Amino acid sequence: MNYQATYKPARMVAAAIETHFKENLKTASLKDTGDVASIPSAQVIEAIIDAAFWASLRKEEGNPPKISIAFLTPEQAGDPLLFEHRMPLTTGILTKLAPGLERAGIHLGVCLEDGELFIWGTTLKIPNLCFVLDVSEPGLLVIKHRRVCGFGKFSNVAVLKGDQVKIIDNKGTLLSDCPPLLKILLDLEAPGDWSDPINILIQLAVSMRSHRHGGALLIVPDDTEAWRNSIIHPIQYSISPAFSGLASLTRNSDLHGADRQSSLNREVDHLAGLTAVDGATVINRRHELLAFGAKIARKRGNDDIGFISLIEPVQGGTVSVVHPGQIGGTRHLSAAQFVYDQRDALALVASQDGHFTVFSWSDAAEMVAAYRIESLLL
């Protein structure tokens, strides 16, 4: 097909996105991971991004569209809903269809026929590595794909917001001892099942970001109470005994499939919702809730934190050494101080504006490392 996008960033990123999918396809073929989706060409990617961007700026019945577009044929989808007549991929049609397709997990199927892109219907099932474009809000597009393992949060490839373009980099920007959560989000490691401890943290991060109140979650070791030395006492919302709703569910082998995932979603949202309360929520590595609304203080006898390493895993990103006060407000500064004092802990911080930061101690850098990962959580 021959297409010239009027949305300039679509032309800027199309070739890089095509390369990403081709490289992943080679890896998947070597691992013999089963059915994978067809890889769209740069021209196809450019056209889909262009149509989706202009649709995102329109409104239908007063609401901006939220829609997920998947590039695949009906034969590659599982039990698809097929339109009697195929429709061209245009801004107007996307806007009209959006209200009926905004629920999570519903994808609008698009394929290439005779050099033209057409909408053929919808599907709830897509193959591994399937190209997906989500219209998240006006002017915000996220290109992602289904993981080769077949479950877990989709792997993000690029984020476009107006004239800002971020292409995810899973090769050169991370410190050697970055948290496992980052490695799974970047497809550097395969996740376990849905109840894997790292997968639970990813789901908590997504849920924290979605409530848009901002919040801090501290993850501390199971076998020590040392974290209490970095908290102001009394703790207003201390939990005793530790609440094990999420922890018990992850160990429950009686629930399976959709029932297990639905129960897990409720427990994750329950715990993540508490991070909206002023102060920090504290859990241990078994995901037992220890406290929320906790006020962080510098550990007695320790210094105030000095500088941290700031990293965003996107192409063109660099490792910067900054004061934690430069990347956010009190919540970021206190979380960085907590990890500086409690070096075997992890801190997740969500901002009201959608930014999300993971703080961990890095032996390699000999300082606290702050990873900006909102581009991975969309």
Results as ranks from 00 to 15, higher is better:
Q337K: 06
L348R: 02
R331Q: 08
G273Y: 05
N284K: 04
S262Q: 15
S56A: 06
P241I: 07
K183D: 00
L175N: 10
W120N: 05
I45S: 03
T19S: 14
V268G: 09
A55N: 14
L112E: 15
A15T: 10
V319L: 03
N302V: 02
F83K: 13
F53A: 01
N284E: 01
R331C: 03
P127M: 08
A77I: 11
T27D: 13
I202C: 07
Y371Q: 03
T250S: 01
L30A: 07
T122F: 08
L218D: 06
S263Y: 14
Y7G: 02
F356M: 01
N302E: 10
F151M: 12
P9T: 08
G162N: 07
D278Y: 06
I119F: 11
V349Q: 06
N302D: 03
L160W: 12
I235Q: 06
D32N: 14
T275Q: 08
V349P: 07
K161E: 11
A336V: 02
G328C: 01
S375Q: 14
D222F: 05
G317N: 03
D169M: 05
L376Q: 01
N2R: 13
T90K: 13
G316Y: 10
T91M: 14
V132S: 01
L186I: 02
L186A: 09
V282K: 02
I126G: 09
G257M: 00
N128F: 06
A190P: 06
N156C: 06
G34V: 05
T122R: 12
P127H: 06
I231K: 04
A345N: 04
A98S: 13
P197I: 04
E366P: 00
A55M: 15
W194K: 06
I93V: 15
I168L: 09
S230H: 13
L182I: 02
L30F: 07
S155N: 10
G172A: 03
K125F: 05
K161S: 09
A47K: 15
T33N: 10
E23T: 08
I143W: 14
I200N: 12
G215D: 05
S262D: 15
I45W: 09
P80D: 12
R251D: 14
G121A: 11
P64L: 04
P64N: 15
M208P: 11
L188W: 09
R209W: 02
R228H: 02
P99A: 04
M12H: 15
A347F: 02
P324D: 00
K153G: 00
Q43D: 15
I327P: 00
G34S: 04
F83E: 12
G78F: 14
Q76F: 11
A247Y: 05
C178W: 11
N63E: 15
T73A: 07
L217N: 08
H211G: 02
L25Y: 01
A242H: 10
L129R: 13
K183T: 06
L25D: 09
N128A: 12
I45P: 09
H287E: 04
H107Y: 15
A158Y: 09
E116Y: 09
N252H: 13
I200Y: 07
E312S: 03
A226M: 15
E60G: 03
G78N: 14
A365I: 07
I126A: 11
D169K: 04
L264N: 05
Y371N: 03
A280Q: 10
K166T: 12
Q76C: 10
I311M: 00
H355S: 11
V36S: 05
